[in-house]
Design a protein around this nucleic acid. Sequence first.
DNA 1: ACCTGAACACCGTTCAAGT
DNA 2: ACCTGAACACCGTTCAAGT
Lengths: 205, 205
Amino acid sequence: MPTPERTSRDAIVDAGRDLLETQGLEGLRGLTMQAVADRVGVRAPSLYKRVRNRRELVALIADATVRELGARLDAAAAGEPDPRRALAALARAARSFARERPVAFGLVFTPGADLDLDPESLARASAAVIRIAAELAGDDHALDAARTVTAWLNGFVGMELSGAFRLGGDVDRAFEFGIASLTGALTLRRREESGAPLAISVSEH
Amino acid sequence: MPTPERTSRDAIVDAGRDLLETQGLEGLRGLTMQAVADRVGVRAPSLYKRVRNRRELVALIADATVRELGARLDAAAAGEPDPRRALAALARAARSFARERPVAFGLVFTPGADLDLDPESLARASAAVIRIAAELAGDDHALDAARTVTAWLNGFVGMELSGAFRLGGDVDRAFEFGIASLTGALTLRRREESGAPLAISVSEH
DNA sequence: ACCTGAACACCGTTCAAGT
DNA sequence: ACCTGAACACCGTTCAAGT
């Protein structure tokens, strides 16, 4: 006689996302299988019917986060036809998202995390940056430009979440300074290309 | 009758650094108190005479890593009088260090890690970037410029360690592209200031 | 004064037994 | 077919007892 399903994979992931954000990944409260089970109303062993193990649960939470981030970035960039304004809007949207879900954002961008995220989710999350980078820097430099922007953006937001900006000053202003600097640098790349070279390239080794 | 000391705080931290790099922070092998104790030749409870708890041990490992990074950055930048070349050398040194100690580097730059690193170690590690940023962008923009460079550099290296550059292309080239772009952008800031404005600033908001 | 075995609480995970 | 209590291995940490 089959017993009825008392929870679902989605409910488990949602509970996990919530717990991650409120209790952290590891701490003494932390994202434990026990805590997730309590939230969804089953005993811990039942979770293993829906999820291979805790590692997979964490990966699913990370994937959901990447998808949501991608949707936000798309929406922010779509509203701005001018690529410079679109880049600024996208960057601000990423920063807002990170402030809403600091722990999940941190998880996704943790260097050694070794979640293997769904390539499709990742592609979706980076599509807008790549498109804008191509518009700003030209097709030849699109990938390099996108990597420069993404690195700066992830780095800035990650440092802000870590409290790494300890020297005072206005962090909002530093963020806008970064946007303006990158926009300027990438735009110049395009100008260089179109025949008006400026002596800005640093000698490489 | 006092028993002789069979280990030291330094030996514990060194063993911890080694284990962290070879076994990872958490995994099944992982940085466990048991594994550290085995390495230094005592039983796990004895570690608590030298270190408050595992959390403190991890923080000490992170601090040692930051100090070593700082020394490397200083050395790399000191060899180059031209600030543009100095910035490039510093960036490459940071990337090399991250490749030598990927796990420790990742730990230090993990967004939610909540190690509270020694402010002195951090100041030492960021001094060279700030000095170079001031030379490139002028004193008024030094802090913003340093934050832009540091964010890009940490972001790039972190993404590289995560395997986040999945779209092919030449990652080395993207790194050099980033160095050149940032150097150009910050240098332009200075030119703008000195009375030769270029229409590169993005409209803010 | 430092070291240790024993013990505790906690956690991820498995599994046989229930329905 | 899903759920559960019981159990296992493992981990961080404490502590009384040894030297």
